[in-house]
Design a binder for these strands. Structure first.
Lengths: 264, 264
DNA sequence: ATGAGGCTTCGGCCACGGCCGAAACATCCA
DNA sequence: TGGATGTTTCGGCCGTGGCCGAAGCCTCAT
């Protein structure tokens, strides 16, 4: 055995998940209003009850009640700030659950799935909890791999930065050894993972690396958030920067599914 | 870009998961009775309504109603066989959701988590949907790695069989190029993945390789199922075989958390 | 200080859905 | 052919929980 026997705190208590506790969480995600709120929170930004109420299409009192339940169960966490209360997903584990649900929801039977109006922009670039997703994310991972900064293995299931890649990313402003806000239990969040992009059906980067990359791109102003949506816009400076720095191919908008028309 | 641009059928329809559909699935998992049924099905065996009724602690009519709903939504699938109807989880995607829920349920706040009676046996070896989990699974992966049959990377996030390992596993009776029963949409299930063992907090093998391995171990009689439980028993022949063939360390029962006491 | 905006609490309405017992249906066995 | 076993359908009971409007708080702006 090699490094996999890292000093993980096993003693913590490996009790088994009870059906009751699972049902408790799932039931909270199982209400349309709450599901829409949580889906909005998957954008990664903390949102106020008012914004969440609009997302869910219910009144403020109803929203307040929902949020209280979600917070009590540890699904979301709140942070008071002046006159507002900002809610966010409580942990990466919860984001995992929502992600798995999204995959199952799309992979399922071919029911009627009305393509929403903003789909075009969402498919190009969006935030997924704390990292970048969409065609841009897929293309970016491709570019990183082509440059030898990241090595993919196992049919795209796994990714790992190369030594040269670490240097490159550090120069870009990423601290790969940072704390990485894992959820409790002392479990450190993995540095680099792939996450199946559920619109592109191809992997993109997640984990601490993916999160740091998105943060950096936002700070640089290369990407900007679209208010009230998970969609992200690639600025002109951003596109130029990504092409110059990451060698993003100029035709990245042309994926295997053809170019995406962004609704005007 | 490398092999990651495999011929995946993108045209299939990358519509976005709606809150409604997500809520529909989550609501189905959000009832204690149904959650317990699905947890039982996570054992990987197809079960009859009667068995599921006992697992859930509800009457037969109630169970029947639950199963009808789950089947209609594509969460479970049924197969009639004589006087019995065998139910199983409908897809790996659903198993993924349940797994994420189990992780979230254990990782959450330290609520009271009564350790069940069969915990000891479960922690040693159990089935997880279609592959092996528990301390034995973790030790087995460690042995495979030590023998150079599998290469782990990225903090245990990823695993991949080496050429030598493929040969070894083929000799053991595994067909690594088999179809692999992925769920619809032509998406082929990954060959080899790791899955965080949520009792050991360490990775073990899943994917087609993990599934094939468990199947083979059961066929050989090295592992046997404990009726009415997800627990698996390592037979004397099995332990000897694993030590001889896989070089499983003799003291595999002694994990980082100390030996496990199996309730008598 | 006074008002405005945002959020929460309270009270009450109503529907959805889980639960069971009884009975119908299906399948296998004798 | 009859009876035993497993499964589903039907009917009815009842609790849980989502929803809103009105009113109360709190925080900030004027």
């Amino acid at each position: 055995m090699s490094g996999m026997n890292a000093p993980l705190p096993l003693d913590a208590a490996p009790a088994f998940a009870s059906g009751a506790r699972i049902a408790e969480i799932a039931a909270l995600l199982g209400d349309p209003a709450r599901a829409n709120m949580l889906l909005a929170l998957m954008g990664g930004q903390a949102l106020t009850p008012g914004e969440l109420a609009r997302h869910a299409g219910v009144s403020a009192p109803t929203t307040s009640g929902h949020l209280a339940k979600l917070a009590a169960a540890g699904v979301v966490a709140a942070r008071a700030q002046g006159r507002h209360r900002y809610y966010r997903l409580a942990s990466p584990e919860i984001a995992e659950v929502l992600h798995a649900l999204m995959v199952a929801a799309t992979a399922g039977p071919p029911r009627h799935r009305p393509p929403g109006p903003r789909d075009g922009a969402l498919r190009l670039a969006r935030s997924c909890y704390d990292h970048l997703a969409g065609r841009l994310a897929v293309a970016l991972l491709g570019a990183l791999e082509a440059q030898g900064h990241v090595r993919l293995s196992n049919e795209g299931e796994a990714a790992e930065p190369t030594p040269q890649g670490r240097e490159f990313l550090a120069a870009f402003g990423l601290d790969l050894d940072g704390p990485g806000q894992g959820s409790g239990q002392g479990s450190r969040r993995p540095l680099c993972r792939t996450c199946l992009d559920w619109s592109e059906r191809r992997p993109h980067l997640s984990g601490r690396l993916g999160a740091g990359l998105l943060e950096r791109l936002l700070v640089l102003g290369w990407l900007t958030r679209v208010p009230g949506s998970r969609a992200l816009t690639l600025t002109r400076a951003g596109e130029a920067g990504l092409i110059a720095t990451f060698h993003l191919p100029r035709d990245w908008r042309e994926g295997a599914g053809g170019p995406i028309r962004v609704a005007s």
